[in-house]
Design a protein around this nucleic acid. Structure first.
Lengths: 341, 341
DNA sequence: CTGTTAGCGCTTTCAA
DNA sequence: TTGAAAGCGCTAACAG
């Protein structure tokens, strides 16, 4: 059992500190600190000795202490409604990757757990003293907003393009997307359109714009149904059933999100309705599966990865000391016409 | 604009500290601390004054400082491969909810970002001094394991039931699940079975057991194909195509995960194969969509939520000072026979 | 029930 | 290139 080097925690059970390492390497504590954080300030000879001491002791820096004195935690916290929402995964992957490359750690906080109030949650997050925050939706509580403003913390709000960002905004116009969805259906000549929508603020913005465009064009909106979040395929199936009950002659359904569209596809199939011949189906989000359903789903693509990258870039610029330049970046969206419309 | 009370950060731009609050409330710092952390030790009269001072100043505690001295961060970090994997969402929601109820904050760390080495990642996580860790898969690096062991940190490994846990293990036997999947197909009389599998260690464990059971029963495994992670529906569609090329007479396909099975369903449909008549399809995971595909997908259900609850319970017990009782909890699994087999 | 003292582990600042 | 002193903001331990 001597092939793995012995662990050497401290002689007692005490956790190893910078001073312990310093003593072993016969240097001062600050030198050890420099080897870890600013190695270019230390001679290679000394650094080597220190690194060996770190390895032998299994020293792991205490960022609580480091962050307390330096006022930098190298921590970025991102709020996501829940990890169940596939919309944000690409954003988070790219955000995390880019931040990690700059030695910042991204940690995710689920914001839509039961009994969580927004301003309490923000306080809990701020109490960790992150260097920056990423929000996947804008704050609705004024006090929470003020906390961030007061602190001058770098913040990126994302997946939206509302009027009044705290500091930076990376997203797209949900209203424009909703209108584009309507126009697409209009172009394809659909006449009796049903709307299947999730009870979510952003989805609601898309729905309104969509409905307005449809009405302006004089097209009948035969039926509308709302489903609770978090949505699943189940709501898509049940939703189509409800819609068809309200108006059996629907020739198309627009869905607030691909998950619903997928359910609609399944329900249509179960009822022997041919898509797109008997029923056109349009989704939103371009989730991975959308390109591989049968028939393949027409949808709206949002560049989730790019949102993450832009957020990271802004944050990194801010963290390098740049002034809080207010940024509003529209990443746009793209209507993907596949086989379901 | 005077309906929202004025913010009052510090007179200067300095962030508000405990001492500031104490001065305003005319009490000592420790009393403010008590109002926040152990309110039962403070008279209601004093507490009231303090709370009002907190509210007026917008004070947000600094947990870096608090954690440094108290050696408790009230932070639990969970490692998830990536937020893209729906298997863990229920686990994380329930874990987070239960921990929050006990005043612990759960933060998620993505462990499968590019350029992330396991032991480096663990060190980065440990440097935040969390009070506990939850792993969605066991550590493979011996040094990382040792770090945790040495630190005596409460740790739950989950979604597995391997031989040698660091401390606690909540999961199920992937081998048993694989065998059960095979037996199910056998019971239904399938004769030429294809295996579509993702390149993932746990999936591989299930595949082996599945294959073994099939072979023991003397059933032909006509074809096998592996797909890279992260898997998507796309791999399911392409996978069935490859499988059918290898053996056009396949009468069933077992998939390592529901996402693949969903793709197989779509591809079968696109080719005019009727499920389950022409082709039986079995998935794993019982993701939300599985019950709502057409036909509904037979699969293996794992109680993801319960894993999170059990993990939380163990951690909470440990954090209340209990000895590191080694726990191995088998949550089992359930074969859900729906319409695709 | 409230306060005083000391110090957690680290980095900043200044000096050599 | 290295080090000494000071202190970040908070809570444990003890005293009153």
């Amino acid at each position: 059992m001597s092939d793995t080097p012995p662990p050497i925690p401290d002689a007692a059970g005490r956790t190893v500190t910078l001073d312990d390492v310093a003593r072993i390497a016969k240097v001062s504590a600050i030198t050890v600190s420099r080897v870890i954080n600013r190695p270019h300030l230390v001679s290679e000879r000394t650094a080597k000795r220190v690194r060996s001491a770190i390895a032998r002791t299994g020293y792991v820096p205490n960022l609580l202490a480091g962050g307390l004195v330096s006022q930098r935690s190298r921590l970025v916290i991102a709020l996501v409604p829940s990890v169940a929402n596939p919309a944000f995964t690409e954003t988070m992957t790219h955000l995390g990757t880019r931040l990690a490359a700059a030695r910042y750690q991204l940690l995710l906080c689920q914001s839509e757990l039961p009994h969580q109030e927004e301003s309490t949650l923000i306080d809990a997050v701020l109490s960790r003293r992150p260097d920056a925050l990423v929000l996947t939706k804008p704050l609705s509580t004024p006090t929470a907003r003020q906390r961030l403003l007061a602190r001058g913390l770098p913040v990126v709000e994302s997946w939206e393009l509302n009027a009044d960002p705290i500091e930076a905004l990376v997203g797209f116009s949900h209203a424009a997307a909703g209108a584009a969805m309507a126009r697409h259906m209009l172009d394809h000549g659909y006449q009796r359109i049903g709307l299947l929508w999730s009870e979510d603020q952003r989805a609601e913005t898309r729905r309104r714009a969509c409905l307005e465009t449809l009405i302006e064009a004089g097209v009948a909106v035969g039926a509308q149904a709302a489903v609770p979040v978090p949505v699943g395929m189940r709501h898509g199936r049940e939703g189509l059933a409800r819609l068809l009950e309200m108006d059996p002659r629907l020739d198309a359904v627009i869905c607030s999100i691909d998950l619903l569209a997928q359910g609609v596809l399944a329900e249509a199939q179960a009822r022997g309705l041919r898509v797109p011949h008997d029923l056109g189906v349009l989704g939103f989000g371009d989730f991975e599966f959308a390109a591989h359903t049968h028939p393949r789903l027409s949808t709206v693509r949002v560049d989730s990865a790019r949102i993450g990258e832009l957020a990271a870039d802004h944050l990194l610029r801010r963290l390098e000391g740049d002034k809080p330049t207010s940024l509003v970046h529209d990443v746009g969206f793209e209507l993907l016409v596949r086989e379901s419309t």
